Amino acid sequence: MVGVDVNTLTMEQYLALSRENQAPGVVKPEIRGNVNFKIKSQFMRELREDTFSENKYEDAHDHIDRVLSIVSLFNISGVSKDVVMLRVFPFTLTGAAKRWVDRLAPGTINTWDLYKKAFIQRYCPPSMTTKQFEDIHNFKKEGNESLY
């Protein structure tokens, strides 16, 4: 905004202003040609019903699989799955996961493969898997516990 004195803005107003002028972290590829890119409301409803918010009980791999299974139900002629996923996946994120995507550096992600890798690395890092394997490996039955 031209003519705004940033010294008089609240922090919330300043952050909103700076986000408006910032390019998104996820680049939405241009859809070329005479393609009518519309996602039916029933699919959008399904995508929004099962969101991911960084809850410790959520599985990043399962979330990606669920989104891919919903997206596989529709076909938009002339539009690749890559383009569809880059446009649709952010709608399936809420809470901390949504904030993570919103705070990515501009132009960070421009393919579905990069998006998927970044998402998995963020929410299912190798250190988490290693810890889970350690927990399983170190599992012991105490003397006063039964197997049932």
Rank of each mutant, 00 (worst) to 15 (best):
46 E>A: 05
54 E>D: 15
51 T>K: 09
38 K>E: 05
53 S>P: 03
45 R>H: 01
79 V>R: 05
78 G>W: 05
140 K>Q: 10
35 V>M: 05
117 K>W: 02
31 I>Q: 05
12 E>N: 04
130 T>K: 13
11 M>P: 10
31 I>M: 11
134 E>T: 13
54 E>G: 09
45 R>E: 08
12 E>K: 12
65 D>V: 08
107 G>P: 07
53 S>L: 01
53 S>Q: 10
5 D>L: 14
132 Q>H: 12
74 F>I: 15
58 E>V: 03
75 N>P: 00
9 L>K: 06
116 K>C: 10
70 I>L: 00
106 P>H: 15
43 F>C: 01
19 R>G: 02
119 F>P: 00
25 G>I: 05
44 M>Q: 11
136 I>W: 04
137 H>G: 09
104 L>F: 04
125 P>V: 05
108 T>W: 01
108 T>D: 08
7 N>F: 10
136 I>R: 12
99 R>L: 09
148 Y>V: 10
138 N>D: 12
58 E>P: 04
95 G>S: 14
78 G>M: 06
51 T>N: 08
50 D>T: 11
90 P>E: 01
20 E>A: 14
117 K>A: 14
89 F>E: 04
16 A>N: 13
109 I>M: 05
115 Y>N: 00
67 V>R: 00
54 E>S: 13
103 R>E: 06
62 D>V: 03
115 Y>M: 14
130 T>S: 10
53 S>A: 07
143 G>F: 02
138 N>I: 04
77 S>Q: 14
84 V>R: 01
92 T>G: 01
116 K>E: 11
122 R>K: 15
77 S>D: 10
128 M>E: 11
145 E>D: 11
15 L>F: 06
28 K>W: 08
92 T>P: 01
50 D>L: 11
62 D>K: 08
28 K>M: 13
97 A>E: 03
21 N>R: 13
8 T>F: 02
98 K>M: 04
88 V>G: 03
118 A>C: 13
52 F>G: 01
110 N>L: 11
64 I>C: 06
